[in-house]
């Protein structure tokens, strides 16, 4: 048996660990690029007459900030993931934990990151006007909302069609239709108002690394949460005395 708290713990643990992996990866591979972009930004500000604004934190502190941000993001996403997982698990407790973890993380990755990214891809430092930040934040949040709604709809619709015994092509085409509708509404959102002035290679290298760190974050969460779920499932069904004790203690201890 499982309690909500143990699911939340698994989510925070798997997400935090995925954040360490993703943050470590971007510290090693993405920071050189970020540093380059920051230097270009400062050089351009100086060339245009103004002096570069004094930075609150040094670059090395911001490097550490990247790691902290990745771990925090991972743990937070892991907790939200666990809440959704708990809802699914309550509705249908017999699903295999590994498969469900991978499916749910795939859905989260698509809805929370991939769909919004297609509309508003990541930009390196130096792109982005402080004056338009509110517009950009609102548009970005709207894009995440559309992505999450689309994925949830697709998930429910595919389950509903499967229950009614519809064939795989019908289910998959229905999911594709929802994704296309989501893309259409994403592109109905206003364009990013800022001009991308950084060199195109820098911008695209940055976007690829951004995709890789998000992939590591969600992938790590899926693998970690799935493995923890398997481990608990095995302990719960093990005929050994220890396994029985654990499943008896579970609900009353936590």
């Amino acid at each position: 048996m499982t309690s909500l708290l143990s699911l939340l713990g698994r989510g925070a643990l798997a997400g935090g660990a995925a954040g360490v992996v993703s943050g470590g990866f971007s510290w090693l591979l993405a920071e050189p690029l970020l540093d380059k972009a920051v230097r270009l930004e400062a050089a351009r500000e100086e060339a245009s007459g103004g002096s570069a604004a004094a930075e609150v934190f040094s670059r090395s502190t911001q490097h550490a900030g990247l790691l902290v941000a990745a771990v925090l993001t991972g743990a937070a996403i892991g907790i939200l993931f666990a809440v959704v997982y708990a809802i699914l698990h309550r509705r249908d407790p017999d699903a295999e934990p590994w498969r469900r973890s991978l499916m749910l993380a795939g859905a989260g990755f698509t809805g929370v990151w991939l769909l919004p990214f297609l509309r508003y891809p990541a930009n390196p430092p130096g792109v982005g006007d402080p004056g338009t930040i509110d517009t950009r934040v609102n548009a970005w949040l709207a894009a995440i909302g559309i992505g999450v709604i689309a994925v949830a709809l697709a998930w429910r619709l595919q389950g509903w069609l499967a229950e009614r015994g519809r064939s795989a092509p019908q289910r998959q085409l229905a999911v594709t239709a929802i994704m296309l509708a989501a893309l259409a509404s994403l592109f109905a959102l206003p364009d990013n108002p800022d001009a991308v002035t950084a060199p195109a290679t820098l911008v695209w290298d940055f976007r690829v690394l951004s995709a890789a760190s998000m992939g590591l974050l969600w992938g790590g969460l899926a693998v970690g949460f799935g493995l923890l779920g398997l481990r608990v499932a095995r302990a719960g069904t093990a005929p050994s005395r220890r396994g029985v004790e654990r499943s008896e203690l579970g609900p009353s201890v936590v």
Partner: peptide, 18 residues
Amino acid sequence: YVHEFAHDGRHLLAGPCH
């Protein structure tokens, strides 16, 4: 402070930043 500290992560994880 919070924005500047999380600055690199905000850019890399595709959030809007200044």
